[in-house]
């Protein structure tokens, strides 16, 4: 029987952007409010999983042509690089620095290297979750 998923696919096309936007918000809000890289990464993985549910593996691989194992490695590299960057300034490993910067459009921003470390956590969580889901899902 040929099934018709038009309602699920149309709803996914709208809800997906809400979930991705919410995950980006949670990622950036992690410094002052609940959230952070872990929850944001899981929520981004949830958005991709919703895409996998509404469409199929090959279509999603065409939409998002990422190798998730490389994404995990990149995340670990960013996290280690943030930690090792402190060694260049004669500070202990994983010492973080922050500054206030005036960006023309956005105004006064508090830039912190912990956000870059959190980006590494984000990429690792997305990569590991999607690797697990894809490895389980592609077995016939």
């Amino acid at each position: 029987m040929k099934t018709n998923d038009v309602i699920l696919q149309t709803a996914t096309k709208i809800v997906l952007f809400v979930i991705v936007l919410f995950s980006v918000y949670i990622f950036f809000a992690g410094h002052y409010t609940p959230g952070g890289g872990f929850v944001g990464g899981l929520l981004t993985a949830g958005a991709i999983i919703l895409l996998l549910l509404a469409f199929d593996m090959k279509t999603v691989a065409k939409i998002l042509p990422f190798n998730y194992m490389n994404m995990t490695a990149l995340g670990l590299l960013i996290a280690i690089g943030t930690g090792a960057g402190a060694l260049l300034f004669n500070k202990p490993f994983l010492t973080h620095a922050f500054t206030y910067a005036h960006v023309p459009v956005l105004g006064k921003l508090s830039l912190h290297t912990a956000a870059i470390f959190d980006l590494g956590v984000f990429l690792v969580v997305v990569g590991v979750t999607m690797t697990i889901i894809q490895t389980i899902g592609e077995d016939e």
């Binding site: 549910l53 469409f55 199929d56 593996m57 889901i133 592609e138």
Partner: peptide, 14 residues
Amino acid sequence: KYLEKGVIIENERD
């Protein structure tokens, strides 16, 4: 989706 198709993530949709 599991109830309807027996598989949650399809490899390739017909």
